[in-house]
Design a protein around this nucleic acid. Sequence first.
DNA 1: CGGTTATGTATAG
DNA 2: TATACCTAACCGC
Length: 296
Amino acid sequence: MPEGHSVHRLARQFADCFVGQALSVSSPQGRFADGAAALDGAVLEAARAHGKQLFLDFAGDRVLRSHLGLYGAWSFGGTDRFRGASSIGAPRRIGEREAHDDGAPAGGPPLPPPPVGAVRVRLVGDEGWADLRGPALCVLESSAEAEAARGRLGPDPLDPHADPAPFVAAVRRSRRPVGALLMDQAVVAGVGNIFRAESLFRRGLDPMTPGRALGEPVLRELWAESAALMRTGVRLGRIVTTDPSDRPGTGEEQAWPEHAHLVYRRQGLPCRRCGTPVAAGELEGRTLFWCPSCQR
DNA sequence: CGGTTATGTATAG
DNA sequence: TATACCTAACCGC
């Protein structure tokens, strides 16, 4: 699920599997043909995430900057190392095929399967490959251009060196609802609709409260809450924001997927903490979920 | 099979 | 505020 935690996992996956290798780069779909041609054969030097954006730094001052948007995904295949994250992004079951290595040179790298669907970018390294489908953004830039783009984003709670001060200041100077500010990538980078709903619930904050009505301590707690939930997301590979006491049953008997969230997509169901029906509404074109009783 | 929905953002009006 | 973008899962028929 492409909120910030997914993209940080992607950066780690690229670092583990591709950094230091010269990659074959292609665009089977054709919509990134020029960029792919310019990158083909280049050595990947680093893989980084800031918020929901992925930065792949290639030798020669070339950066492949991408954003999965609502339905983009990277899928991986190859040797065992690549199976750790067969697909990261929108929910789908691709990248689970076996390596298509019939006809591969003995001892050589596994070959990727023929592209299925619209593969915007295919990267092939020594031991596997990665396919990008459906991205909202996929551009080849100089490092200066990529750095300028990164500078337009707010601090990322998943960055251990991030300073929350710009986030706190941006919220406190705005009349916009805190629920809208949390989704603004220039205010804080990496929070999406699920982390917004869940972190506001966990801090007991009404999403419609104007930013300027909130104090600095409350906002630092909100930052810390988001960071904690996002770190859990990185660790688990999915968003789980409920505590064990929020979930029915005990031990291993819990029915997990249905009990991963506190309010997100639970409209009409009783709040896990107080029983009041969870509310849903729209804010700036996105669905907002909250408990009218716990959040005020 | 077709309609709906989605973890997102840029752009137009 | 509306829409375009672009892909796949899900659901009802």
